[in-house]
Amino acid sequence: MSEQTPVIMHMQIPSDTKYLAAIGSLVEALVGIREPSLGFSLQLALTEAVANAIKHGTRSPATDDVGIDLFLDAQAVRMRVHDHGPGFDLESVEVPDEDELSDHGRGLQIIRALVDSLSYGPTPAGNTLEMIKFFPPPAAAEPDDS
């Protein structure tokens, strides 16, 4: 991939968790071409976001869909997940209490730890969770002694 040419992808999937593996693997592979160290973590962030959209953001799971946009260039990867649910206040979602040992509620905690920017709100595509991860700057070239 030329790092000057962005990868732009839009997907629309049924509201069904059986699509998670395919989408996650595709995004990990695409990100991995640019920055191998981030492929796994961004697959995980996207999987959490899409699973949340399927679970909480669909009006009718049998007929609804989830939209996913990926924009990958030399500086960053931007992922947007669009749902059609009632929405939620991102800032009011608290980190699970470790002592309570809940068996759910860690999805946003994981996403927050893996991306540099996270936002959620209404857009023309529905309610949109946007995740941005900036790539580390390229290592300085070794001096050429020849």
């Binding site: 996650g24 809940s102 509620g105 860690r106 994981i110």
Partner: peptide, 16 residues
């Protein structure tokens, strides 16, 4: 090779 919060939640449930 891959686990998400839902998979972790299942293990937490089993633990409890």
């Amino acid at each position: 090779t891959f686990i998400d919060s839902s998979g972790i939640g299942a293990l937490v449930s089993g633990f409890k």
